[in-house]
Design a protein around this nucleic acid. Structure first.
Lengths: 334, 334
DNA sequence: ATGAAAGCGCTAACAC
DNA sequence: GTGTTAGCGCTTTCAT
């Protein structure tokens, strides 16, 4: 900026005014400054400017998702990015990998870079490590998973009801012996979905005692193994609810290998790509990651803009998409 | 930091030393500083420190991909993130949306934030707008697409050979009338893949004059339309090469609707999720986005670390994955 | 309409 | 082992 000022033959503050579009600069001066800017390929240093700027904003956001690699998280990331773009805010995207230690490290990295706000998928139920940050006024929005003991904005899917609707759908189809394959119990959505599953069974008067509920399944491989084991068991389920997109994938592979794609019903939680092209099509409870990302971004920015109202809780609805796999009838409906 | 120093009863520089793990601080003093750090929930300001630090590094990377939402780009993003994490570098991820204007804006946004290096998927063939940046020594690595007239490191798939191998595979299966559905001609990989396609046909002595080559197909919907039109044409192809993952998806839907999934052969470029679960399985030329991302990140960091050697060109191989759709024989092989 | 001076939070260089 | 000073690139405040 010093150099630009020198080349344009003006004071350093005038350059600042021009570059930031502030008033009180003559057309002529502005033109001279702009040509110097171009000649030197000058770009404002946002870091330096944020140090003095009122409010100290960095025009930067920290986004923590399960893994940028997962389609659900990728859609959220994209939605956040799109909102941020309208405000010239850049977003740091980071993967949690469902590792509590990594969560704190990532947030620490965001904080060191003085992000204006945080959108977080967390393992932590209490967010205790964030207490001082919250007190200092840094906006935090939790997505996908809901912390218990923290006063923050939250945007989540209706996990419980979504899982319940999947289960009710299978029950309505005549199934009584329905298995659930869900993620690790330290992941909150896994627990919510299990609760919805059990609630639906209870609501239908189906005893849940010997219903196979397999938790701790985190990837397609272990989902494959879990379904494989279920099918080989003494009293195999006639239907399966898979509580997460990667689990659905592994379960489909296991059913495929067992030649059971057309005999064992399946409803997945979360959309799977090409679900409509399989035979049978994959019935799923579809989430709406775009809305989750968009709403979360809107909430952070509202807070950044000074919204001091009570923390909000947004529940984004799910939708049962019927494609065939969930409509298979039980073979031995006695 | 001032406050920490005051609370710990030491000078500000001592806090700096402790926090940055520099030597020459007594255990006792360090302990006092750390407890003050914790009491105040202090986090170093990386922005401020980077202003004074020798080299002025910000420990920040800019990554531009087609869309963080696309599985191919998402895998690259994840790989870059993983390498960056080992160096405590944060990455700004941004989507290009195959829009040249957006490209320059995104890079400008990165530059304003003084990223240490750029990993870019570009539309621009010349990278002329990056000339000053390159001269200033900011490392740039181009991925997926290869600029013509810029002296930068490049990491790309072997698009031409990959497309050629897909085509040769179909020719070996007896196909003579093979259609290509590819992306917009301003996207370089689309052109490369078309060239590979035509090269393979030429190599087999198949006249390419009336071979259907549909360019400008960017999303599943237009791919659907394109395949639909081809099937309805006077002389429909017996096989299709789809040059990109979203195109493959749309093409499969069109074949499905036409009841032609088992009669018209298909080989896709780029992996599709659940490709093994379809009937027939989807034969694809698999790229290796993880390697692309990893190598690109390693190159940027090597440059950041002072590697001044000539710019490198890494070609990451592709692999033909045979699953069924590419092995369908032509019906009317006369 | 323009510029000079102060200082944001930090580290390099040099005291002590 | 520790503190002081200067200054990174910028914006704020206040003069002119």
């Amino acid at each position: 900026m010093k150099h630009v000022a020198a080349l344009a033959g003006v004071g350093i503050k005038t350059v600042s005014r021009v570059v930031n579009g502030e008033p009180n600069v003559s057309e002529e001066t502005a033109a001279r400054v702009w040509s110097a800017v171009r000649a030197l390929d000058y770009h404002v240093d946002l870091q330096a400017s944020s140090m003095r700027r009122a409010g100290g904003r960095t025009d930067t956001l920290g986004l923590l998702v399960s893994s940028v690699d997962n389609p659900f998280a990728a859609a959220i990331t994209r939605a956040v990015e799109d909102v941020a773009l309208t405000r010239d805010v850049a977003v740091f995207a980071s993967s949690l990998d469902d590792d509590a230690a990594r969560e704190e490290l990532a947030v620490e990295a965001f904080l060191r870079r003085r992000v204006d706000g945080l959108i977080l998928t967390t393992m932590s139920r209490s967010l205790s490590y964030l207490r001082p940050t919250l007190e200092r006024g840094t906006p935090v929005v939790c997505i996908d998973r809901e912390p218990l003991a923290a006063d923050v904005d939250v945007v989540v899917s209706d996990n419980r009801e979504g899982a319940a609707s999947a289960t009710r759908h299978l029950i309505a189809g005549g199934h009584r012996r329905i298995a659930l394959i869900a993620d690790r119990p330290d992941i909150q959505t896994a627990v919510d979905r299990r609760d919805g599953f059990l609630e639906a069974l209870g609501g239908a008067g189906i005893p849940t005692l010997d219903i196979p509920v397999v938790m701790g399944v985190h990837d397609p491989e272990s989902a494959y193994d879990a379904v494989h084991a279920l099918l080989a068991s003494e009293n195999p389920p006639t239907a399966v609810v898979t509580a997460q997109n990667l689990i659905t994938l592994g379960a489909l592979r296991a059913l495929q290998e067992a030649g059971a794609r057309h005999t064992v019903a399946l409803v997945g939680f979360d959309e799977v790509s090409m679900g409509d092209l399989l035979d049978p099509g994959v019935t799923v409870v579809r989430q709406d990651p775009q809305s989750i990302g968009r709403i979360a971004a809107e909430r952070v920015f509202a807070r950044i803009d000074g919204d001091e109202s009570a923390s909000q809780r947004h529940v984004v609805g799910t939708e049962l998409v019927i494609r065939g796999s969930g409509e298979i009838r039980p073979r031995d409906s006695r």
